[in-house]
Design a protein around this nucleic acid. Structure first.
Lengths: 103, 103
DNA sequence: ACTTAGTAGACCTAAAATAGTCTACTCATA
DNA sequence: TATGAGTAGACTATTTTAGGTCTACTAAGT
């Protein structure tokens, strides 16, 4: 077992965090929706984990001034400029998959 | 001006991070889709910032073992147990909005 | 305790995403 | 450089979400 929560549960938990951010600013869902440029229902869906689009999430995060969070997903690998010259560029594709046990 | 990128641009940049995570594992989109339990198109949408659902994102993050990231959105406010007794419970709603300049 | 603002839930229509399949392009590797 | 795996893009059908509105419930303020 790796993840304790189901995907659905995680969406709900995530929505609670969104709500937390909103409440810290003490604005209601209607205001947030207005500032984010989305429908009130979109905010409801997000906060209640009912299913939402990534677009709505991004707009809401911008309104909450937490859009920077989106950039913290993939920790950037630091490479020294000198190394950059030697190293070949980053992969753009996954490499060929080897057949299971050669077969 | 607050955010440098538009919402669309942010989705694209976010998709690039997702791709980065996948490439580090050296798996292709098809495999990731399979492991995540979503359609190949869903992964494409996510990585290319074409628009996707939060549900798809969560499933993909689980497959990438980065689901924990979802819990880092709202920094939890620490309160000492003693303080908890005194403090009144957290807000569950936004407070009444005051009319603009009393009017 | 009363009142009312804030939120949940249901309903509808339009818009958008998912899933599945096929074609075309291109990076990686032999 | 020739081959083929990996990805993008288009297409259709189906499912889901956005957006708008209305009703009901409930936490907050008075």
């Amino acid at each position: 077992m790796q993840s304790l929560k189901t995907a659905d549960e995680m969406e709900v938990a995530f929505g609670q965090q969104l709500r937390e951010l909103r409440l810290r600013r003490n604005i209601d869902q209607r205001q947030l929706a207005g500032q984010a440029g989305v429908a009130l229902n979109a905010v409801k869906n997000l906060e209640n984990g009912k299913g939402a689009t990534l677009t709505s999430l991004v707009k809401v995060l911008r309104a909450l001034e937490r859009a920077d969070w989106l950039e913290t997903l993939a920790p950037t690998v630091e490479i020294s400029p000198m190394q950059l010259l030697k190293t070949r560029q980053q992969r753009q594709r996954a490499s060929k998959q080897r057949g299971p046990t050669h077969a």
